[in-house]
Design a protein around this nucleic acid. Structure first.
Lengths: 147, 147
DNA sequence: GTTCCTGCAAAATTTTTGCATCAGT
DNA sequence: ACTGATGCAAAAATTTTGCAGGAAC
């Protein structure tokens, strides 16, 4: 069982537990998210599924993402362009963050255990019940530095 | 000279250096940002200035924010609701981050030197020229935990 | 006087919602 | 059958853009 299968199964299980009925549109969104290795926008998901011959309504994409986000199965963040980006959250909590090129908008994922430790630690002294976090670095990618 | 005066002056100086002409709308936005202690949305800025009797066009708010952001005088981030939030960036680079309540959207700023150190360190091994960063924690605020 | 800023209105985007219909249970 | 998911279209909200008039230099 691959990593993505693990997440898609987990997501479907949680949805079933919460009393959701299954449907083709949300299944397609879940399957798509399960095989991405970085965040995608709702519009990208919609277009990609359309190209694959599994066209679904854009409203269903948003409704699926909303449901998955409410159940903390997907993480939402904004790379700085006002377009929401979504990605699967592994059940174990392992996850990555993003560096965004301010010129070409290219996004690179990265992970850093020390960063996670520091955030977990500072979360303890904040009076909120912390459920998650996003870190977005901004800068110029190697290609744009050359230019 | 207060902290906010320092930033507004700095911002105006940078704009002048870069060849911008001065104008009432952008002045109002800069003055407003200079006296906020946390991030505000473009719409909030527009409405607040209107209430103060200094109504300016919403387009000018966006154009001012865009110019200030390009010059790295303001930082933009998204609390998770798809509405961009902007705040002044101190010349020295000192800054804070945000915790957002997923239920009531209340935002609390916080700062953590250890977090800054870890981010500066990991930025070294990323092939981007890092210019800034945002950290957004998500959770439930004290009031929403009670409810 | 020339250039840049501003405001208004229109447009473009992203996201949400109403409603009829269809699929899952 | 009943409930919930889906698609389409309309609407809402945010942000961008064109253009004419006015302020800054």
């Amino acid at each position: 069982m691959s990593h993505s299968d693990k997440w898609t199964d987990h997501a479907q299980n949680v949805l079933k537990e919460k009393g959701f009925s299954r449907g083709g549109a949300r299944d397609a969104v879940i399957e798509f998210l399960g095989r991405q290795d970085c965040a995608t926008t709702a519009q990208e998901i919609h277009q990609a599924l359309g190209r694959e011959g599994r066209a679904i309504g854009i409203a269903s994409v948003y409704r699926s993402l909303e449901a998955l986000h409410n159940l903390q199965l997907v993480q939402r963040f904004d790379a700085g362009d006002g377009e929401g980006r979504y990605e699967a959250v592994a059940p174990g909590g392992e996850h990555h963050h993003h560096v965004v090129c301010d010129e070409c908008d290219r996004i690179l994922p990265f992970e850093d255990p020390a960063l996670e430790r520091v955030i977990d630690k500072l979360a303890e002294r904040i009076p909120y019940a912390i459920a998650g976090h996003d870190v977005v670095l901004h800068g110029r990618c190697p290609d744009c530095q050359k230019a």
